[in-house]
Amino acid sequence: MQDWPLWEVFIRAKGGLSHRHAGSVHAADAKMALEHARDTYTRRMEGVSLWVIPSAQIISSDPADAGPLFEPAEDKIYRHPTFYSIPDHIKHI
C-alpha cells in the first residue's frame, strides 16, 4: 500500500460551478482513485462531479522562481479595472 501513487481530487460542488481542488488520495488505479475520492471527500454532499488526476501528472511552477514569475505583477495595479468610475445608474457590476 505504501507504493500506491497519489491522486489529486477535484470536486464540482453543483452544476455551473467549476471543479475545485479538495485534497488527495492514495490509490492503485484510476477506478480506485475515484472510489476513494468519493468515499473520502463527498460524504457530506460536497459535490455532484469528481475529477481525479495522478499527482505526478501535474506540472507545477518552481517555488524558487516565484520572484521572476509573480513579483512583477505586484506594482501593476492598473491591471485591475478599478480606475473607471461607474455611473450611479449601472447596477450589478
Binding site: M1, W4, V25, H26, A27, E35, H36, D39, T40
Partner: peptide, 10 residues
C-alpha cells in the same frame, strides 16, 4: 489505508 478505512465505514 485511511481511504479503505473510510470506504468500509461508509
Amino acid at each position: 489505508t485511511i481511504e479503505v478505512d473510510l470506504s468500509l465505514a461508509n
